[in-house]
């Protein structure tokens, strides 16, 4: 199994309002380039336990844009890759619940990424 290194130096541990821990550059882009507001959306990622051995993750953007076809990556907390796939047409993806702690990453594009820790998963 391949090993993936997640570079996340700006990770925020206690973001109070966002489902995901964001590491988006979109906000900075809005401040620097206010005329490009159409692209100034934040990525959103949220996951929940289906209580049947599977996890469902949903992703999209703060302006309502979907995540269909964009990348979801699940890794162990030691960065070892568990799976990498793409969100479906309904902007969600369901996978077998890993038996270890894990981190889900939504990779929209290089400037739109969000992560979600398994410890934050709702039942």
């Amino acid at each position: 199994m391949a090993s993936v290194r997640i570079e996340d130096p700006r990770r925020r541990k206690n973001w109070p309002f966002c489902a995901a821990r964001l590491r988006s550059f979109a906000g900075a882009g809005l401040l620097l380039f206010p005329t490009t507001a159409a692209r100034a959306h934040d990525p959103i990622l949220s996951c929940f336990d289906n209580n049947n051995g599977t996890i469902t993750c949903e992703a999209g953007y703060s302006d309502g844009a979907p995540s269909a076809g964009q990348t979801i990556r699940v890794t162990q907390t030691n960065k070892r890759l568990i799976l990498e796939d793409r969100f479906g047409k309904n902007s969600s993806f369901t996978f077998k619940k890993p038996n270890v702690d894990f981190v889900v990453e939504f990779i929209g594009d290089p400037s739109h990424r969000a992560t979600f820790d398994s410890e934050d998963i709702g039942k």
């Binding site: 966002c18 489902a19 949220s46 703060s62 309502g64």
Partner: peptide, 13 residues
Amino acid sequence: FTKTVVNVGGMPG
């Protein structure tokens, strides 16, 4: 006729 809007996770609809 009453409306209350709840949002989950910040993604609008």
